[in-house]
Structure formats: structure tokens, C-alpha cells
């Protein structure tokens, strides 16, 4: 998608702690879609069938569009003269705020689908509410992205069902992917201090309010996929606070290579 640009609009003014929290959160959201889009783009030319290659690239492109809108807004709000590219390419891994889930490697197609389903189910339900929240710029970005996210969720849900209720092999692979990735699910809906500040200020929905719809959708998909819901999984957290798995460093080494090797140039 094209970035949502509303540069003619005046920037909102918030109390200092809300301003800082909003900046942190915008970067967190942008990092999340950038990192996941990067992972999906690694599939390019290697998908299981041409139509799905196209779908993966399409989702990657949507997420990248959302990333750019968010970084552009963050850069303006910060007012330090940084650009979307500075934010993407010149921050170290410890300053990246994406949840652990999205940096996990692609693995086989089942891993990619489980990762995508867990993310889409959160992303779509979040954006649905975010588009009605009072920060106009963020609401506009959410309004644009929610249409895409609805398609992403449909796509990943259908693949969860196909793989779960497909062949014995696809079911085993899906179950293995669930055992690997489910541990990262709760971080999405566990608010950080910045998210809590925004929730208190009314700029961000309370995540508890997203859970019923998310859980109902998960239950429907798992029933159609004839899969039991994973139970007793010990959850992992940390990415949203900058504590990442080892995978992110390599991803950023690749993502940031050109800007690090040729600093300060125009491309």
C-alpha cells in the first residue's frame, strides 16, 4: 500500500509521558510490520506454488506500506530530523521493539503460516479498534491497514485449516510449528509500560477487549482444522522491550547492510 501521508495536518500535542509512549509505540508497530514483512519477502521466488508466492509477496508489501506510514509519523512526531530510513536502518537490535514472534525464521510453510495466523489474528482485531481511536493520524493508518489485515487473516486462517485438515504430513508439520511458535503468542496482547500509558490515555484499546474476538476466531479455525488448542505452553516475552532472540541480529545485518556500508548516501 502507499504510505498514509497527512503532512499538511498539524501534529497532535500530548502530555510528555503520552508523547514519549506514543513515539515508542509507533516505532514498535513499525518494527513489527517491517520485520515480519522482511521474513515474508525471504520467500520470494521460493514459495510452494506460484499463486502463494504472489500472496506472500503481496502481504509483505502491505506490511511494508504500513511500516513506512508509521515510521514517517514517528519521525515527524519526534521532530529530530530523522527519516523513515534512519529509523529502519540505523537502530541496533536492542532498540528494535517488535515482539519475538515476528522475528522467528520462516521454517517450512507450516511455520510461516502459524506465525502469520497468530500475528494476523491480533493485528486485524487491534486495527479494527485502533481506527476509531482519537489519534487521527494513527487512526487513518489503521483504517487503511485494516482492510489489508482482513485479507491477511483470511489467507492465513484458510491455510491453517487446509494444513490441519489436509494430509497426515501437513497436520504433523502444523502441529510441530504450533509447538514451536505458540510460546510467542501472549506477548502480542501483554501491554508494555508504553502501551499501558496509551491505554490509560485512551489512545490504544485495552487488550483484554480484543481477546474475546481473537479467541473466538482461533476456536473456529482450530475446529475447522480439526486441531486441539495447545495447552500448558510456557510463554516467552521480551521483544517489545528490546530483548530479542538471536535471530533478529542476522535479520538486521541483512536489512541494514547497505546503509551501514555506505553511510549518508541517497538511494
Amino acid at each position: 500500500m502507499q504510505p498514509v501521508s497527512t503532512s499538511t495536518q498539524a501534529l497532535p500535542t500530548y502530555p510528555p509521558e503520552v508523547h514519549v509512549a506514543l513515539l515508542t509505540y509507533l516505532v514498535q508497530l513499525a518494527d513489527t510490520s517491517l520485520v515480519l514483512g522482511h521474513r515474508l519477502s525471504e520467500w520470494c521466488g521460493h514459495g510452494p506454488v506460484l499463486e502463494q508466492d504472489l500472496a506472500l509477496a503481496n502481504i509483505a508489501l502491505d506490511l511494508l506500506g504500513e511500516t513506512r506510514s508509521l515510521y514517517q509519523y514517528a519521525a515527524e512526531l519526534e521532530g529530530q530530523g530523522r527519516t523513515e530510513d534512519d529509523l529502519a536502518f540505523l537502530r541496533p537490535a536492542t532498540e528494535y521493539r517488535n515482539p519475538l514472534l515476528v522475528e522467528q525464521p520462516n521454517g517450512d510453510f507450516a511455520h510461516t503460516i502459524v506465525r502469520q495466523f497468530l500475528f494476523d489474528n491480533f493485528h486485524y482485531h487491534l486495527l479494527q479498534q485502533l481506527q476509531h481511536k482519537p489519534d487521527e493520524r494513527l487512526a487513518a493508518i489503521a483504517e487503511k491497514s485494516v482492510k489489508e489485515a482482513a485479507y491477511h487473516l483470511k489467507w492465513s486462517s484458510e491455510w491453517m485449516i487446509r494444513l490441519g485438515d489436509g494430509t497426515e504430513e501437513s497436520r504433523q508439520r502444523l502441529e510441530k510449528a504450533l509447538r514451536t511458535l505458540w510460546r510467542y503468542a501472549d506477548e502480542l496482547t501483554t501491554p508494555t509500560p508504553a502501551e499501558q500509558t496509551l491505554q490509560t490515555a485512551g489512545l490504544l484499546p485495552d487488550y483484554a477487549s480484543l481477546l474475546p474476538a481473537m479467541q473466538a476466531h482461533t476456536a473456529r479455525v482450530f475446529a475447522d482444522a480439526t486441531l486441539p488448542l495447545p495447552e500448558g505452553v510456557v510463554m516467552q516475552q521480551g521483544g517489545k522491550l528490546g530483548r530479542h532472540s538471536e535471530h533478529l541480529g542476522y535479520l538486521l545485518a541483512e536489512l541494514q547492510y547497505m546503509q551501514r556500508a555506505y553511510p549518508g548516501m541517497t538511494w
Binding site: 517491517l34 522482511h38 519477502s41 525471504e42 520470494c44 521466488g45 506460484l50 508466492d53 504472489l54 509477496a57 503481496n58 509483505a60 508489501l61 511494508l64 506500506g65 511500516t67 513506512r68 515510521y71 523513515e84 530510513d85 529502519a88 536502518f89 541483512e254 536489512l255 547492510y257 547497505m258 546503509q259 555506505y262 548516501m265 538511494w267
Partner: peptide, 20 residues
């Protein structure tokens, strides 16, 4: 994955998608 700017990355991704 190594495109030097986000804009170039988006254009390249769209281009490769066109090719598919």
C-alpha cells in the same frame, strides 16, 4: 531484503510481484 531504502524495497517487491 538488502534494498538500501524502504521506498526502493517497496518498489522492488512490487516489481518482483508483478513478475510472478
Amino acid at each position: 531484503t538488502r534494498a538500501p531504502s524502504l521506498k526502493r524495497k517497496a518498489i522492488l517487491l512490487a516489481k518482483v510481484q508483478d513478475e510472478a
